[in-house]
Design a protein around this nucleic acid. Sequence first.
DNA 1: TTCAATACATAGGAATGCTAGGTATAACTT
DNA 2: AAGTTATACCTAGCATTCCTATGTATTGAA
Lengths: 108, 108
Amino acid sequence: MTSEMLKGHLDAILLAVLGAEALHGYAIIEAIRTRSGGHFDLPEGTVYPALHRLEQAGLLASHWVQPDSGRKRRVYQLTDRGRGSLVERRDGWSRFAEGVERLLGAPA
Amino acid sequence: MTSEMLKGHLDAILLAVLGAEALHGYAIIEAIRTRSGGHFDLPEGTVYPALHRLEQAGLLASHWVQPDSGRKRRVYQLTDRGRGSLVERRDGWSRFAEGVERLLGAPA
DNA sequence: TTCAATACATAGGAATGCTAGGTATAACTT
DNA sequence: AAGTTATACCTAGCATTCCTATGTATTGAA
C-alpha cells in the first residue's frame, strides 16, 4: 500500500474522523491509526497542513484549548459546510471504489 | 469524484485491464470507460504517459501492429513482472479500501 | 474536401502527501 | 537535576502524479 494511494482521499478521512467527534491534530493522527485497523499511520507533516487547508476552505473550525495537564492543543470541529462536504465525499468514495472494483475485481 | 482520487491507483487499473487481454492505448481508454460502468473516462494525456512509465518499469511490453484497416497501433501486454505486480496491487487496493471504509464507514 | 473519429505523443502546470527539520511543554527515568 | 521520551504544534521544499493543451498522422464519412 503505497502512500500515493492516499492522495485525494485524505480530506474525506479527516472530515469523517471529525464528523464523529471534535479532536486536536495529534489525537486525529492516533484516531486514524486506531480506527483504520492500523492501516494508516500518517505523519504529522501530512495531517497538519491538511487541517490548515480544510480550515482555510471553511470546512473546519479550530480553537485553542489549555487542558488541565499538558500543553495547549488546537481542537478542530466540522463546520456546516464541512458536514455537507463529508456527505458528498462519502458518496464520492463509494462511486470511486465501485469503479475501481469493477476494473480490478475480475481476475483475468 | 475528483480526479485527484485516481492518484496511486491508475497503475493498478491499467495492469488489471491488460491482465484480461492485450490492448492498445486507445482501446485501453475505452475499456476503462466501459468496464468501470462509466465512472472513469480518462484523458489520453493521463493514460499514454502512464503506459510508458509502466513499460519503462518493466511491467508492460509493447509492439506495433498494423491492422488491416486503420493506422498503426501500439499494443501492450503484461510481462511476468507486471503480472506479479498486479497481484500485489490488487492486494494493496483491498487493504487500502478496507482502511478507508473503516474510517468513512461509520457515519457520526 | 471538410469534418469527425481513431491513434499516438509530450511539455508544462497544479495539486497533494511526505521528508526533514524546528519549537515547546510535560512526564518519566536515572 | 539531568536526560530521555511522549505529547503537540509548525513549515519549507521535494517528489510524484494526473491533467490541460497542443501537436501529428491516418482513415472514413458527409
